[in-house]
């Protein structure tokens, strides 16, 4: 193929304009999220190896003191609903911005951030009352690693959304320009979806 195209016609104008093929920033965010998905995949791999290893004995596995690990499914279920809802409030804020309503965006971001913060606080409270530490058996290490990594991601998401909120107060976003906001919301949705998976795979089944 390389040999055939000899003289493609050159359009006559003074230097072509370089048109962006797509938004590079959003694409980079999607690739980064792909990378993050693989990070969680590696941690889930570890979790399943450990789970498979102990499942031959009993499930849920036993702590070092001989009691089974127990996870607060109901409370965390409620917490899961809070986090899922925060995705929708963020989406609503973006819709308001698209309609030209910057105030609406600010409201949406505030609600989202508060819900995310609530989620984190409930998680920390859960850690305090679980009754086992990461140094217990391998299962507890996997549990804390997965939820801890996710918590760190929620924190990063909250920081990103806070920065967006600050920008929103300065009226920096508009119908035409909202790339940082969109990138942040991709990240937030990703954090939520990972949590749903985590909740299902670690708490429920």
């Amino acid at each position: 193929m390389a040999t055939t195209a000899g003289h493609a016609p050159v359009e006559q104008h003074s230097g072509p304009e370089q048109k962006p093929h797509m938004n590079a920033s959003l694409m980079a965010m999607l690739l980064f999220i792909g990378s993050e998905i693989m990070l969680f995949a590696s941690l889930f791999t570890a979790y399943f190896f450990i789970r498979y290893g102990v499942a031959n004995e009993t499930w849920p596995p036993l702590k070092q003191d001989g009691e089974p690990f127990e996870l607060p499914v109901i409370l965390t279920g409620v917490n899961t609903l809070i986090l899922i809802s925060s995705s929708f409030t963020l989406w609503w804020g973006e819709k308001r911005l698209a309609a030209g309503d910057n105030k609406g965006l600010i409201r949406g971001l505030w609600v989202t951030i508060l819900m995310g913060g609530t989620f984190l606080l409930i998680q920390l409270n859960e850690y305090a009352h679980l009754g086992f530490t990461p140094q217990d058996r391998a299962f507890s290490g996997a549990f804390y690693t997965l939820t801890g990594f996710h918590g760190a991601h929620v924190l990063v998401g909250l920081i990103v959304l806070s920065l967006c909120l600050r920008r929103a107060y300065k009226n920096d976003f508009s119908h035409a320009y909202h790339t940082p906001l969109t990138a942040g919301s991709y990240y937030w949705h990703f954090v939520d979806i990972v949590w749903v998976l985590l909740f299902f795979l670690v708490y429920v089944i």
Binding site: A46, I50, V54, D136, A138, G141
Partner: peptide, 20 residues
């Protein structure tokens, strides 16, 4: 941190490391 991912008698699995 003293976790037990690779301590077999605590339910850990060293082969898991090699896979990852």
């Amino acid at each position: 941190m003293g976790t037990n991912f690779f301590v077999p008698d605590q339910g850990g699995d060293v082969i898991m490391y090699q896979h990852i």
